[in-house]
Computed example of a mutant assay.
Amino acid sequence: MKSLTGFRDFLMRGNLVDLAVAVIIGTAFAAVVKAFTGMIMDIIGKFGGVPDFSSTSIYGISVGVFITALLSFVLTAAVVYWLVVIPFTNISARLKKQEEQVEAAPAVTSEDLLTEIRDLLRQQAVGNPTPGQVPGSFPGQVTER
């Protein structure tokens, strides 16, 4: 039974779930990037007069597969950079700036709070003094005139 509990704990560990989500999202995103790269390759092929570079050769050396792979890599890197890296960097910078603003806010000390409470009590006392109370003093406070 102990081994089943350990296995369950292993499966429910946060980083394993995060990794599984990343793999699933990565696989779906790879399909999007592959389709986009295929579109761009078709456009490049139409301008070059060749629908697919795979069969291109120079002096009998097949370089088409390399050209196709190189263009696919560059296009994939461009899509990842502009659709993932730049937005993530901007969001991270914005969140970091917000965290710095929260940290930069002056911390309220207990002395500040007590001063504020004293001032509020003094205002209440001045506005509505009890009989025999000197205005500006606390209720029950003995003051000399």
Rank of each mutant, 00 (worst) to 15 (best):
G48W: 10
Y59F: 15
F36S: 11
Q133T: 06
G45Q: 10
V50Y: 10
T143P: 00
T68L: 05
T143F: 00
S137W: 04
L19G: 14
I40L: 07
G140E: 13
S72N: 09
G140L: 08
R8G: 01
E103G: 00
G38V: 04
L71E: 02
R118G: 01
L75A: 04
W82M: 03
D119I: 03
G6K: 15
P131A: 08
A28E: 05
T37I: 09
V65E: 14
L4Y: 13
G60H: 08
F29R: 02
L120I: 06
A78Y: 08
P106I: 04
S72C: 01
I61L: 11
T115G: 02
T27R: 04
T89G: 01
S137A: 13
T27M: 09
G60A: 07
R8V: 13
T143G: 00
P135D: 08
F73R: 07
I61V: 14
T76Q: 04
P135H: 05
Y59V: 06
A35P: 00
F7K: 13
M1C: 01
L71C: 10
S62E: 15
A20G: 12
F138A: 11
P139G: 02
E100M: 10
S55M: 08
P139Y: 12
L95D: 01
V23K: 07
I61G: 00
A35V: 05
G49C: 05
V79W: 15
L16P: 00
T37H: 01
V134F: 14
T130E: 13
N15H: 12
S54V: 15
V32H: 06
V108R: 11
P87L: 09
G6C: 02
L113H: 03
Q141W: 04
V65F: 02
R145K: 15
L83S: 14
A30K: 05
S72V: 02
P129D: 03
A78Q: 04
S92E: 11
P135G: 03
P131V: 12
A30R: 05
K96R: 08
G48D: 03
E144G: 07
I24Y: 09
A35S: 11
K34Y: 11
N90P: 00
V85F: 10
F88L: 12
T109D: 01
K97W: 02
D9F: 08
I43W: 11
G14M: 06
F36R: 05
L120C: 02
Y59H: 09
R145A: 15
V108K: 09
S62R: 15
F47H: 07
I67L: 14
A78R: 01
L70Y: 14
V142E: 13
A93L: 06
L11W: 07
G45K: 04
S54N: 15
L120N: 10
V17D: 01
Y81W: 13
P106K: 05
V74C: 07
A69R: 07
L70W: 14
A35T: 12
D9R: 15
S57I: 06
A105F: 09
A35L: 12
G48E: 03
S57F: 11
V134S: 08
F53I: 03
G6I: 08
W82P: 00
